[in-house]
């Protein structure tokens, strides 16, 4: 546990020293909203379309971040330094997942207001924000878990920028389904609809299964 905290502190310190992931992912998200405006020719969106745009933008921003998640460790020998220490190796995976989760929350703090201003038709009142929060919590968990696992896998391949997204995209389809379907009624015109339990169930099950799987498999991705 203390190892996770030590690693986490290092990640946050690095991001604070040289902000890289959070600004890049946020900027990418906002720019994507602009792109969607022109691509769809819509001034405002709601319902299915709004939920889809939000989830897809978040998905691609995550993939952008995952590509950089391990670069410092790989290129500056952080992996070796960590492997030389007498600590539990899974701690690195846990720390990376928590880091990615924290970054996603920060990115969403930028993306959601931008989305409300630029594209979203229905207003964003407290109820909508609360429901968004619940769904995004589960979404972020899934994105962090898969991002941590796929990032660690891709960083050791020669074509890492290609392999990572190619694996992550299909793997995350269930998250997209769960999130988009859950958010569609929340973001629809004429008042926020209820959250459907089964979509939260799908997201929760996904997070649980891949969380455990990533926890069990992460160690195998570290050794040379």
């Amino acid at each position: 546990m203390s190892t996770v905290l030590t690693l986490l502190r290092k990640e946050l310190l690095l991001e604070r020293r040289v902000p890289q992931l959070v600004p890049a992912m946020s900027l990418f998200g906002v720019t994507t909203f602009v792109v969607f405006h022109f691509a769809l020719g819509q001034r405002t969106v709601e319902g299915d379309l709004a939920a889809g745009i939000l989830v897809v933008t978040l998905l691609f921003a995550t993939i952008l971040g995952v590509n950089r998640l391990y670069v410092a460790d790989r290129e500056e020998g952080g992996f070796d330094a960590f492997l030389l220490a007498p600590v539990d190796r899974t701690a690195l995976g846990v720390a990376k997942a928590v880091t990615l989760f924290a970054f996603l929350v920060l990115v969403e703090l930028v993306m959601l207001p931008a989305f409300a201003i630029l594209l979203l038709g229905p207003g964003m009142d407290l109820e909508v924000v609360a429901k968004l929060g619940v769904v995004l919590l589960l979404v972020n968990l899934g994105l962090s878990v898969i991002g941590t696992l796929v990032g660690a896998l891709a960083i050791q391949t020669r074509a890492r920028d290609l392999i990572g997204p190619l694996i992550a995209l299909p793997l995350l389809v269930p998250v997209v389904i769960g999130a988009a379907r859950a958010l569609s009624p929340v973001l629809s015109e004429g008042g926020a609809g209820a959250l459907e339990g089964r979509w939260l169930g799908v997201l929760g099950l996904y997070d649980l299964v891949f969380g455990l799987l990533a926890y069990a498999l992460f160690d195998f991705l570290l050794e040379d």
């Binding site: 696992l149 896998l153 050791q156 391949t157 694996i167 793997l171 389809v173 269930p174 389904i177 769960g178 379907r181 089964r198 979509w199 799908v202 099950l205 996904y206 299964v209 891949f210 799987l213 990533a214 498999l217 195998f220 991705l221 050794e223």
Partner: peptide
């Protein structure tokens, strides 16, 4: 081999989960 196995296990678990999500959708 090791990385491929990590992939194969993850993807193997993904097969039923994905079917569940898509069918519900």
């Amino acid at each position: 081999g090791r990385y491929a196995s990590v992939f194969a296990i993850t993807a193997g678990a993904f097969v039923p989960l994905n079917f569940l999500a898509v069918r519900l959708a």
